[in-house]
């Protein structure tokens, strides 16, 4: 494995997202209970916990992807740069441009690689000219660490890439809209170990410009890429702190049981 610059986790960053007393309901099911969490800028925050603990659900509340599910209801407040994203005046469309998302399974659109990346900039009107757009596409693909692999076939379909390449394409696509926060929902669960390594390396680089939140079921991955870790269990946020502290010296017995493999 490579070395993660864990040392800078002591540096204090500004709070990007603050969640206060967040509750999520699916119909009658109380999926998230009273979660308070603060996510810092330019930091990778990992959400870990057993399946069905609500970590993905909570991630999706951060850019209001839950709005697309009819029966889902959110209470409490989530502040992005001090503004409540569940305020009536907030347009989820504008919010999602600021808070990008990468999904569990790579989901490139059935379009060319170029059009996949250009999709976001086009709908948000980020490019004035074709040259602007070309530049954005190249920059995003470079940032997605996939430029060298695809620069000669920008106009072939994105669905023709390998799984790992597809996922990096999706990350590049998310980056192209210039988000401030990047949410990743188990981005490596559908990838093989080599592709996983490449994506993890990419995440670490992305940290320099974005606040990254990653949901993962793999504790090793959380330990490798994140500076902060939140442990969810049965819809509760059990413990939140420095990754090194969570993994070496958990305060809550449930966290310890999970990390040592007794629940999960």
């Amino acid at each position: 494995m490579y070395d993660s610059p864990k040392s800078d986790s002591t540096v204090k960053h500004a709070i990007k997202i603050a969640a206060n007393k967040v509750q999520v309901f699916y119909g009658d099911t109380h999926a998230i209970k009273d979660v308070d969490v603060q996510i810092e800028d330019k930091t990778v925050t990992a959400f870990i916990g057993p399946s069905g603990c609500g970590k993905s659900t909570f991630l999706r509340t951060l850019n209001r992807m839950n709005d697309t599910i009819d029966i889902c209801r959110v209470e409490g407040e989530i502040l992005l740069d001090g503004e409540n994203i569940y305020d009536k005046r907030v347009d989820p469309v504008q919010l999602r441009a600021k808070v990008g998302m990468v999904f569990q399974k790579p989901n490139p659109f059935p379009k060319s690689i170029y059009d996949n990346i250009a999709y976001g900039p086009r709908i948000h009107g980020l490019a004035k000219t074709k040259a602007d757009l070309d530049e954005i596409v190249e920059k995003s693909l470079r940032r997605g660490a996939i430029w060298n692999e695809v620069k000669d076939r920008l106009h072939s379909p994105g669905t023709g890439l390998s799984g790992g390449q597809q996922q990096r394409l999706c990350i590049a696509r998310a980056v192209a809209t210039e988000p401030e926060v990047l949410l990743m929902d188990e981005p490596c669960s559908a990838l093989d170990p080599i592709a996983t390594g490449q994506v993890e390396e990419l995440i670490d680089e992305l940290r320099e410009s974005y606040s990254v939140v990653i949901v993962t079921h793999s504790m090793q991955q959380a330990a490798r890429v994140s500076q902060k870790t939140a442990f969810f269990h049965l819809g509760n946020l059990v413990e939140f702190g420095e990754t090194s502290q969570i993994f070496t010296n958990p305060k809550d017995p449930r966290t310890e049981s999970y990390i040592t493999g007794r629940i999960g």
Partner: peptide, 22 residues
């Protein structure tokens, strides 16, 4: 697949943009 819609909505597209372009 729903993943297509999620991908588009996650990038901040409106529903109609998602429908028309994806």
């Amino acid at each position: 697949p729903q993943a297509m819609r999620d991908g588009s909505l996650g990038l901040g597209a409106t529903k109609s943009e998602t429908v028309k372009q994806v």
